[in-house]
Structure formats: C-alpha cells, structure tokens
C-alpha cells in the first residue's frame, strides 16, 4: 500500500492538499496538513499524488 508522508517543518498551510484530496489529507486547527492515514489503499493513490504534485512547499511525499 502506498505510504504518505508530510514534512511538517515545510508545511505552511497553503491547504491545497486537503482541498484537492480530502480523503487523504485533512487540516489541523491552524490549517496545516494532517495525513488521515500513513498507509492508504491503492484506490486513493492518485488522490494522494494530486496533493503531492500541488503542494507549493513540496512537503508531501507519496511512496509506493
């Protein structure tokens, strides 16, 4: 199953990930990224990658 990691030192709360892929990413109180589950089913892999691609800080990594 693909793994999703977020580098919280890089995240500044643009919020693109949880808007574009709400099933994989959520927001904390400050609007910074929270990964809903470290391992995701293959069916959500494309969603996760959409979040990864669109993060302006390149804080997200999706690993197969």
């Amino acid at each position: 199953m693909p793994r999703v990691r977020v580098d919280l030192a890089k995240c500044v709360g643009h919020g693109r990930c949880y808007v574009l892929a709400p099933e994989v990413f959520d927001e904390d109180e400050r609007g910074h990224c929270v990964v809903t589950a470290a391992e995701i089913p293959d069916s959500l892999a494309e969603d996760a990658r959409r979040g990864e691609r669109n993060c302006p800080e390149q804080a997200i990594r999706v690993e197969d």
Partner: peptide, 20 residues
Amino acid sequence: RERNIHMAFGAGPHRCLGSH
C-alpha cells in the same frame, strides 16, 4: 492545470494569512 504550485499567496513562513 494538473499541477499548479503558484505563489500568488506567497510561500514559506509568510504564506498569506488570509489565503483561505
């Protein structure tokens, strides 16, 4: 657009507070 990592709201620690 597939990948839109524009910085219209800035980037880094000063990312626009009011972007949302």
